[in-house]
Write a protein that binds this DNA or RNA. Structure first.
Lengths: 329, 329
DNA sequence: TTGTACGCGTTATCAG
DNA sequence: CTGATAACGCGTACAA
């Protein structure tokens, strides 16, 4: 079923079919009707591969996230996907497993597919990746953090500011010995920046940053359980813990309930990223609300602006965050 | 940067470059070396669009899920994505919002991109979609449930059997008045089938299915809270509730804790799908473990088999399930 | 408003 | 083992 078959059935040239489909205004109503009739009669579905090759355009964007399984990225993916589809584009999704080398391989594959644009969650890249992006000229939006050295465009919030704000919030509430739990810092600039924000806040308050109460834990609920126990038992003076990633805070709270440690009486708990569950637990957990869906939407929007030549700036969008004070602190 | 540029630099024809890249064995070592040198010298990235058009093949598969945001699909997406990438393929993901009409539009778009294969989560489709699949001949794997009327191939578990097994399990434990909470039945054959399984188990036990204790609720934690309250307060004889979807059971358990209703003393709680959280709560929640990651992997594998012509059967894979008995029942 | 000729970048085919 | 030639299915540019 090629365009040619439609053309023959409608008694016109393929060029007219192409126009009837892509810019119906530029074709007479009569011809348009005949083409539409022929299309549905033979069930013609255009070949976008051929179209894209010929027009040297593409209606597909690529996305690389560190982990598809991680719930945190779902909202962003949804935001990107929604906006793209509203504009007739599609999304190819891939998973780097937090590896810059894998990211490079994936982006190379996307460039080979001649995607119209890229969204990358990570902001630390291999030199080869940076070179490839420069040579190929694909528009790129980075998402993970408001990096100082963007490849191109950035849409995010500041992990440093958010972690600093939460730490200052805890200090303002009167907590003095605040532990920090992050995901492993290697290959994860979000965790690194959150730690920087935490340290900055302590410094502003004239408090020392004590490495003994700064933990790195793998993602997952059990990590949160383990972390809170280690912190409270090894350093009993800890009066609050800031869990700057994943569902660690939930695990910690559940563990406190099991051990009948009062929250926030014995130890206060704060989290990062407002997942549904935090509001439902007892006590509800104080957290930083991040604009994840909006990050996805805006990323797609500025990507489309660039793709359609409506903009050529290297935009940098800071979508901010919000501290949500709840019963756990 | 076209293949032609590489060819000129290496002093060979484009055909030789193509072979050196796609089947290195079929060119002399010397030529292979020269081509590789030229490729990296000019930073050549092949154009798969052109390649796919010419060879009439594709290295992209399409996936349609009801909701990207819903965590439940993440494992499956990961499984598909992993296997595809190991074989040099990529995944385009789209979101139908539980709408058959939208699903039809998305599949049409995927067919327009000439994807090599499709994975669909839903198993109820519009007639137009079924016709399109038949005409285009794309291999399709359906995932959501072991449908009796598959488009092509199916990889799943039986929602009927799983719900029936859990209900029988509860009956065996001695519960006699078992409520059921599902997601809305419209456009969701999973929910419909789970209800069928529940009813079948009750019938086997000679118990009536009482519509007053069968609720449909929207997804989300708060739904679970509301459902358990409605069931227990309006029908006090209810001694167990089977939450056959989403995170409803978690919401219910948290609500019981708030109201100090003993679980399972006042009411037992069972869930569907073994999300991490269920094991961590207190009491841990009894549930059905579904092979979500494996569903994704196997789907990709049989799709690739078909794509590569290694198989032409209309495979039907039942990956089973497992009842996980915990403290909540 | 419609059609013709050509090219997009690659691979299949067949000849050498 | 290598190359010439002709597609693949559509859009661009220009002509009618």
């Amino acid at each position: 079923m090629r365009m040619r078959d439609v053309a023959e059935r409608a008694g016109v040239s393929t060029m007219t079919v192409s126009r009837a489909l892509n810019s119906p205004d530029r074709v007479s109503p009569e011809v348009r009707r005949r083409v539409e009739e022929a299309v549905s009669a033979i069930g013609y579905v255009p070949n976008r591969l051929a179209g894209n090759l010929s027009s040297n355009r593409s209606n597909v964007a690529g996305l690389v996230v560190p982990s598809i399984r991680n719930t945190l990225f779902s909202d962003t993916i949804q935001g990107i996907s929604d906006v793209l589809r509203r504009h007739g584009h599609h999304l190819m999704v891939a998973d780097s497993g937090y590896s810059p080398a894998e990211e490079e391989a994936l982006v190379t594959a996307f460039v080979a597919q001649r995607v119209a644009g890229l969204v990358l969650h990570n902001t630390t890249h291999t030199p080869a990746l940076r070179a490839l992006i420069r040579r190929s000229g694909v528009p790129v939006v980075e998402n993970g953090t408001l990096t100082d050295d963007p490849l191109d465009m950035v849409v995010s919030y500041s992990n440093v500011d958010a972690a600093r704000a939460m730490t200052l919030h805890l200090l303002r509430l009167g907590y003095r010995r605040i532990g920090l739990v992050t995901l492993p810092l290697a290959h994860n600039e979000r965790s690194q920046e959150r730690r920087r924000g935490y340290s900055a806040a302590l410094a502003e308050a004239g408090l020392p940053a004590d490495p003994r109460i700064m933990l790195e834990m793998p993602p997952g609920l059990p990590s949160g359980c383990e972390a809170i126990v280690r912190l409270v038992e090894m350093t009993p003076s800890v009066d609050a813990v800031f869990f700057a990633g994943d569902v660690l805070a939930v695990g910690a709270l559940l563990e406190c309930q099991r051990r009948v440690w009062a929250v926030p009486g014995r130890v206060a708990i704060a989290s990062f990223d407002d997942i549904d569950l935090l509001r439902q637990l007892n006590p509800a957990i104080t957290t930083v609300r991040l604009p994840r869906l909006e990050v996805g939407r805006r990323s797609a929007e500025i990507l489309l602006d660039r793709i359609h030549g409506r903009s050529s700036e290297r935009v940098r969008v800071d979508l901010g965050f919000e501290i949500i004070q709840r019963a756990s602190t």
